[in-house]
């Protein structure tokens, strides 16, 4: 039987030069995609293949001949005859500074890869002076745009603040937030469309917030955890992981990841069960599977505990 399916419009190939090497890339693809295809590494933080590129972290900038300023490779599309440099002096300088800016203002201790990049680009985040004291709980949430109190001269401003723990499933440590917009995008138009999160405020005082900074249980949050899944820094973290880390028992080298299907409704969401010592410690979903694109709902993301409760008790409280 003939199967009629939708056809994507035809894509032509575009010729361009990357780091002196002539290559061809499909029309409409980004410089980043072209680079990755040919094996050129470009660091990224705010980029994720399942999200609309916001190109805000600027760590992926490259130099394009004829362009006055550097361009974000994650969103700039290839053009015929484009000449791209991924390691020019300007590029290296901007990347180093972006990494310094982030590392000097944000706790990157749980951001994968970043320690390596800081070394590769010889970034020195400590050269901006010692950090100013952390903000009191909630203080950054009340900052109004257009005004700020400068820190004591000699100190550097940071976004350090206490962790927000207001539910049993996940927590928000905005001292680790690089404002990559991923959580807002995942919660918003890109996937979940719940819009529990926004960027509030402006400039250095911008922060991820609920409406009037209310706690999550008062907000629109539906605990799908799709924000956690895209957070690149660990600012959003499963309570299970947080507790393990606090207890010093988090050990990714002892973890296995097994792909299976969610036990709940009939949508067939793919789960990745992260298991340590025969215990599920967190659940993710593969980005490249078209049923979920990495997304789950509260049941798929957090509804696995019953499996473990069986070992200790015959049946969960509350039925």
């Amino acid at each position: 039987m003939t199967t009629l399916v939708s056809l994507a419009p035809p894509r032509r190939l575009v010729s361009l030069t990357i780091d002196g090497k002539g290559i061809e890339a499909p029309e409409g693809s980004t410089i980043l995609e072209a680079c990755r295809t040919q094996g050129t590494e470009i660091p990224t933080l705010c980029y994720l293949e399942t999200l609309h590129p916001v190109n805000v972290c600027r760590v992926c900038v490259v130099e394009v001949e004829g362009s006055r300023v550097l361009v974000p490779s994650c969103s700039r599309r290839v053009e015929p005859g484009m000449v791209v440099k991924t390691q020019s002096e300007r590029v290296v300088h901007s990347r180093k500074m972006v990494l310094e800016f982030l590392a000097s203002s944000v706790d990157l201790s749980t951001t994968p890869e970043v320690a390596r990049w800081l070394g590769e680009y010889a970034a020195r985040p400590d050269r901006y002076g010692p950090p100013a004291p952390p903000a009191a709980a909630g203080a950054r949430d009340g900052l109004e745009p257009g005004h700020h109190d400068p820190v004591e001269p000699g100190f550097r401003a940071t976004v350090a603040q206490p962790t927000k723990i207001d539910n049993e499933l996940y927590l928000r440590d905005y001292g680790k937030c690089i404002l990559c917009y991923k959580c807002v995008e995942a919660c918003g138009t890109d996937h979940q469309n719940t819009f529990a999160l926004t960027v509030a405020g402006r400039g250095f005082d911008a922060r991820i917030s609920t409406e009037f900074a209310v706690e999550l249980p008062r907000s629109a949050c539906v605990y799908c955890g799709n924000c956690i899944a895209v957070c690149p820094t660990g600012a959003l973290m499963f309570k299970s992981e947080y507790d393990h880390r606090a207890a010093g028992t988090w050990d990714e080298s002892r973890q296995t990841v097994t792909q299976t299907i969610c036990p709940y409704c009939g949508v067939g969401c793919n789960l990745e069960l992260h298991v340590q010592d025969n215990e599920i410690v967190k659940v993710t979903s593969p980005l490249d599977h078209d049923v979920t694109e990495g997304n789950l709902c509260i049941k798929g993301r957090f509804g696995w505990q019953f499996v473990q409760n069986r070992a200790s008790e015959e049946r969960p409280q509350g039925g």
């Binding site: 916001v54 190109n55 805000v56 972290c57 600027r58 760590v59 901007s94 500074m97 972006v98 800016f101 982030l102 000097s104 203002s105 901006y128 745009p145 257009g146 005004h147 700020h148 550097r156 401003a157 690089i178 404002l179 917009y181 960027v199 405020g201 402006r202 400039g203 250095f204 005082d205 911008a206």
Partner: peptide, 18 residues
Amino acid sequence: FRDESCGQCVPCRVGTVR
């Protein structure tokens, strides 16, 4: 500039502070 930066991109958001 620190007050008026929208805060989107790192170079401006943190650079204006530094």
